[in-house]
Simulated scan of single mutants.
Amino acid sequence: MDLTLHGLYQKLLNNMGPTHWWPADSKQQIIIEAILIQNTTERNAEHASQLIKEATGYDFKKISGLPAEILEKLIRPAGFMKNKSRAIRTVTQWYLDHNQNSQIIAKEYGEDLRSILLKMHGVGPETADVFLTYIFDRPQFIADKYARTLFAQLGIQGLSDYNSLAKLLSALPEPFTYQDAQEFHGLIDEFGKKYLRRKNFEHSFLAGDRLILPED
């Protein structure tokens, strides 16, 4: 069966139900966790996130005031503690400098926002797209590993790295809203954990389907 992009989203949603992803109490928490999750497991990132929560309540002013060795110790379970510490300091200070107002930031930078984010230490394409989707409420597509693996199973060729899919699909087309973009990311990752990580795609409800991406 041929599926449009929105058709794929609806089929995932109908078969799996909403994920309500990203599960967090604040945008500040999402910013921290989006950096912590880089190059580690979800479990390790959650452990470090909990330590930061206990120490600071995700208060960016408290985080920016932590001595370097303390912040690195909190981050340690997620690995790459020096690099991630610097990234967290950079992004949190930038967010503080903009009064932690995501709507004003989005309006100020407009279409340049992604390139601004990419200039920050520790913010690569995937993290930038997570920020656009979950912090700045844009219908961005997050071309993570599960998305690339799923799209390859659905017949999309040449997905060698993050940018290879991001070039094909960046902003999601209408009728996607930013809420749909958030849910789509969660659904793809949950599908990936169940069917792709265990190489069980042929037994999934998407087996035999083919994805048709929108043309530019």
Rank of each mutant, 00 (worst) to 15 (best):
D2C: 00
L3Y: 03
L5T: 09
G7F: 09
Y9T: 03
K11H: 06
L12E: 01
L13E: 02
M16G: 08
G17T: 01
P18C: 05
W22K: 00
P23S: 01
D25T: 09
K27Q: 09
K27H: 11
K27N: 06
Q29P: 02
I31V: 14
I32R: 01
I32W: 02
E33A: 08
A34L: 07
I35E: 00
I37P: 02
Q38I: 09
R43K: 10
R43S: 08
N44F: 13
S49C: 07
Q50R: 15
Q50G: 11
I52N: 04
I52Q: 02
K53T: 03
A55F: 04
G57C: 08
D59I: 11
D59W: 07
D59H: 10
F60H: 04
S64Q: 11
S64M: 11
G65D: 04
L66S: 07
L66W: 15
P67E: 14
I70E: 15
R76V: 07
R76H: 15
P77H: 06
K84Y: 14
I88T: 02
R89D: 00
T90N: 09
T90E: 14
V91K: 10
T92L: 07
W94V: 00
Y95V: 10
D97T: 06
Q100L: 12
N101T: 12
I104L: 14
I104K: 15
I104F: 15
I104E: 15
A106H: 06
G110M: 11
E111V: 05
L113Y: 14
R114G: 12
I116C: 09
L117T: 04
L118C: 15
L118T: 12
M120E: 03
A128H: 02
A128V: 09
V130G: 01
I135M: 13
F136C: 05
R138L: 12
Q140H: 06
I142W: 07
A143L: 10
D144C: 05
A147L: 03
R148L: 05
R148N: 03
R148D: 02
F151T: 03
F151N: 04
Q153V: 02
G155F: 08
G158S: 11
L159E: 08
S160T: 15
D161W: 11
D161V: 03
Y162E: 06
Y162A: 12
N163F: 09
L165H: 02
S170H: 14
S170I: 07
A171N: 10
A171R: 10
P173N: 04
P173V: 01
P175E: 06
F176W: 07
Q179R: 09
Q179T: 11
D180V: 00
H185Y: 15
L187P: 00
L187Q: 00
L187T: 00
D189Y: 07
K193H: 10
K194T: 08
R198A: 00
F201N: 01
H203T: 11
S204Q: 05
G208K: 04
